Amino acid sequence: MNVTAVIPARGGSKGIPGKNTAEVGGVPLVARAVRACLGAAQVTRVAVSTDDAAIARAAREAGAEVVDRPAELGSDRASSESALLHALDALEERHAAPVDVLVFVQCTSPFITSEEVDEAVLAIVRDGADSAFTAVPFHGFLWTADPDGGPGHRAHGVNHDSAVRLRRQDRTPEYLESGAVYAMRAEGFRRSGHRFFGRTQLVPTAPERAIELDEPGDLDRARALAPLLDPPQTSANPSPRPPQYPGKEL
């Protein structure tokens, strides 16, 4: 079975300029994602979709192949799905072979593990799901407020009755999408044009690893946590596995 991991990584980040090549634990974010995918036993191919030369260079050095993303898919308004569909077409043409399972990995989640990638794929190939995603157990009480612009916003409970304060163990379990790993049947993804379709299965992951980098403070926090969360070989900058499918770049 052809299981292809695609890591979309555009160059024009606004929240954190140069985000995808920023280092956490001494390793560029895009390289961290590549290494997690290369270490996954279920993944047969790893590619980075990018419009940026520095990201492409870091991806190749980490052992991935690169799909050159066209400019119209590199803006902050372009959806992740559009970049995935383009990469899927490019890779199937390049290797003259259909992709069975597409894995979407975001390098803005710096503490992805190979095990998480494998579990997302196994949700498809072993458990029969059509799509899957990593998620963390969530026990918080969510609120929303009236957007009236006044000084005293009226609050409303979202996932709870504010008059009934249930204990955590008495509440229905909830999960928060981690934003790190998604897996899907490639054929179903083409039909739906979206990462969630058919029977969707969640893959529980450790809350302490579920960090998404959107603002400069997020990057500072990830760097502070890297010595605690990284296995020794990640920060030690081991020699990357050579590319499995060097091919010509599109």
Rank of each mutant, 00 (worst) to 15 (best):
T205H: 07
P28N: 05
P243H: 05
S75K: 03
R190H: 09
D89F: 13
H139I: 14
Q244R: 12
P238E: 06
S235A: 13
P227I: 07
R154F: 14
A120R: 09
Q106K: 15
T172I: 03
E93H: 10
R209L: 13
R199H: 11
L84E: 08
Y182T: 10
G217W: 06
V66D: 09
W143Y: 11
S79M: 11
P240A: 07
S79I: 05
G179Q: 09
F197N: 12
G217Q: 10
F111P: 01
G128N: 03
D51Q: 11
T44H: 11
R191G: 04
S131C: 14
A96S: 10
E93Y: 08
A236L: 14
P231L: 14
D230G: 07
A62N: 08
A87N: 06
Q201N: 03
L142P: 00
G152M: 08
R45L: 05
R57E: 15
Y175A: 13
R171A: 14
T200V: 15
S235C: 04
N20A: 00
H153T: 04
Q233K: 04
R154S: 11
R209K: 12
A83R: 15
G188K: 12
D52P: 12
R195T: 14
T144Y: 03
E72A: 10
A31I: 06
R32T: 07
P173M: 07
V164F: 14
E61L: 12
V101P: 02
I211T: 13
S192F: 15
D51G: 06
V164Y: 15
T144E: 08
E81C: 11
A96L: 08
H156V: 10
R190W: 15
G12I: 06
A78W: 01
Y175Q: 09
D52Q: 09
V117C: 10
R57I: 09
T234R: 15
I7K: 08
R45Q: 10
P242L: 01
E187V: 12
S131L: 11
S131K: 14
L228R: 14
Y175H: 14
A62F: 03
A22P: 00
T21W: 01
P17K: 04
D146W: 08
D161R: 13
S239C: 07
G193S: 05
V181R: 12
T44L: 02
K248Y: 11
E212C: 03
A62W: 02
L38P: 12
G128R: 00
L29Y: 01
N159K: 04
L219W: 02
G12L: 06
E177L: 14
P70R: 09
A96K: 05
R171F: 06
V34H: 05
R223T: 09
P70G: 07
A224T: 13
P246L: 01
L38C: 04
L73S: 05
S13K: 07
H156G: 01
P207L: 01
D130R: 12
F133G: 02
F104I: 03
E81M: 11
N20H: 08
L88F: 05
C107Y: 00
A206L: 14
A87Q: 08
D51A: 12
L122D: 08
V34G: 06
C107T: 11
Y182R: 15
L166H: 12
G157I: 13
P151K: 05
D127T: 02
L228A: 15
Q244E: 04
Q244T: 11
